[in-house]
Computed example of a mutant assay.
Amino acid sequence: MQRPDLTVLAIPAFIGAMGAEYWWQRRNPAAPGTTRAGDYELGDTIASLTMGVGSLVAPFVTGPVVRRLAPGRTKGGAALLPLGAAAGVVTTVGDVVRRRRECGGQLPEAGTLPSSSSAPVTVRSRVDALSLMTSRSAVVAVGSTAVAAASIWALGTSATRLTRVAPVAARHGALTYLAAIAGWDFIYYWNHRLSHESRWLWAVHVVHHSSERYNLSTALRQPVAEAFTMALPYGVLTLAGIPPRYIEDARAINLIYQFWIHTEAVRSIGWLEKVLNTPSHHRAHHGSQRQYLDINHGSILILWDKLFGTFEPEGEPVRYGLTSNIDSYHPAVIATHEWRDIAADVADATTWAGRFGFLLRGPGWAYARREELASAAGSAAPHVAQPVMG
């Protein structure tokens, strides 16, 4: 008989804790005329709970999809790489033709960037057939490559697969169990950090940061598309002789621990603040102010952040949410807004470095680059007629 998931067994405790937090807030209301970000708001809470349920259901859908899209396993998977290659060829041809147009029929010298070319800047109409073809084929090329890579990576790094090649036999006992928890926590730190430093992973993780509230319901606002990215595999713990069952428990313990730190009701836990990740540390992690961006990535232990230079204590009051909030409680918007933005940015990019940069480089780089391209297009916009939308 399959062992139950500890996180599922903990659901009644999650609900009870949320009720207790709500009761505490009613007993300790915000000052008259002020708004407290930790208070529950119906639309936000429903959105968080919906995403939490979705995160439990999603693996039953995305898992089979990823397995079917793995190149060489099914007809769909076998077609994925040729599709990406064909789209890449179409995009490259479109790039060559476009650059010839912009340079008076001649390609610029090798190594010349479009921004440094002596040729006048040409702003293409959105209804230009070549532009549409190139932008759409670029999205197909980048998207199919990413899905194929994620599928291959997921199948090749699963705990089941790695167990077969483990150099040591699985060991059992309390010490191994503790090693599983510590090992998961260490790998989680790096995956969490990468989720803030690579936009591909950020597109998944941004779901959790999308709320402008901060209470225990926020902890349940979890991603639904983790199957479509690449992360450091927790399955490598099997290579150290840790059984897959211990790894699953370590995952659950990690998630259960993280639940209670999503609150404003607990301000400090004393000297343990030096060792553990706490509500104070995690509030700072959820902040959208500059000093709070990309810090405090630990789950159970805050020691990883102190060791690798990403620790920042909570200082000024935290402003929760994103640097540019989505202003929506709709689950579809919460789950897909960053993916749509990536697709739009890839479509607007004019080089392969830029296209894959919008997928792989940091969110900060992507947003800054988007503004640069928009500014360049805006400065040249008066020289071309814009299509009438209606």
Results as ranks from 00 to 15, higher is better:
76 G>A: 07
76 G>F: 10
76 G>R: 04
77 G>K: 10
77 G>L: 05
77 G>F: 02
77 G>T: 14
78 A>V: 04
78 A>C: 08
79 A>F: 08
79 A>N: 04
80 L>S: 03
80 L>W: 01
81 L>G: 06
81 L>M: 13
82 P>C: 05
82 P>W: 02
82 P>H: 07
82 P>S: 08
82 P>L: 08
82 P>M: 03
82 P>E: 08
83 L>I: 06
83 L>V: 09
83 L>T: 15
83 L>E: 09
83 L>D: 09
84 G>N: 08
84 G>D: 02
84 G>R: 11
84 G>M: 07
84 G>F: 12
85 A>I: 06
85 A>Y: 13
85 A>W: 15
85 A>N: 11
86 A>S: 06
86 A>W: 15
86 A>C: 10
86 A>L: 15
86 A>G: 03
86 A>N: 06
87 A>R: 07
87 A>T: 05
87 A>V: 09
87 A>K: 01
87 A>G: 02
87 A>Y: 04
87 A>E: 06
88 G>V: 08
88 G>M: 10
88 G>S: 15
88 G>K: 09
88 G>D: 07
89 V>R: 10
89 V>C: 04
89 V>Q: 01
89 V>P: 00
89 V>G: 03
89 V>E: 03
90 V>H: 04
90 V>L: 12
90 V>W: 06
90 V>R: 05
91 T>M: 00
91 T>Y: 03
91 T>G: 00
91 T>C: 02
91 T>D: 00
91 T>F: 01
92 T>N: 13
92 T>A: 15
92 T>C: 13
93 V>P: 14
93 V>W: 11
93 V>N: 14
93 V>F: 08
93 V>L: 15
93 V>H: 13
94 G>I: 11
94 G>N: 03
95 D>V: 09
95 D>L: 12
96 V>F: 01
96 V>K: 15
96 V>D: 08
96 V>M: 07
96 V>G: 07
96 V>I: 14
97 V>I: 12
97 V>T: 05
97 V>A: 03
97 V>L: 01
97 V>G: 04
97 V>P: 05
97 V>Y: 08
98 R>D: 03
98 R>T: 12
98 R>A: 04
99 R>I: 13
99 R>P: 07
99 R>H: 02
99 R>W: 05
99 R>M: 06
99 R>K: 08
99 R>S: 10
100 R>L: 11
100 R>D: 01
101 R>E: 14
101 R>T: 12
101 R>I: 06
102 E>W: 02
102 E>S: 13
102 E>G: 12
102 E>M: 12
102 E>A: 11
103 C>M: 07
103 C>E: 15
103 C>L: 08
103 C>F: 01
103 C>N: 15
104 G>P: 09
104 G>K: 11
104 G>I: 09
104 G>A: 09
105 G>E: 01
105 G>I: 15
105 G>M: 08
105 G>P: 02
106 Q>P: 07
106 Q>H: 15
106 Q>N: 14
106 Q>R: 15
107 L>R: 00
107 L>F: 03
107 L>H: 04
108 P>A: 02
108 P>R: 00
109 E>T: 10
109 E>N: 12
109 E>G: 11
109 E>H: 13
109 E>M: 12
109 E>Q: 14
110 A>R: 10
110 A>L: 14
110 A>K: 09
111 G>Y: 00
112 T>G: 07
112 T>R: 06
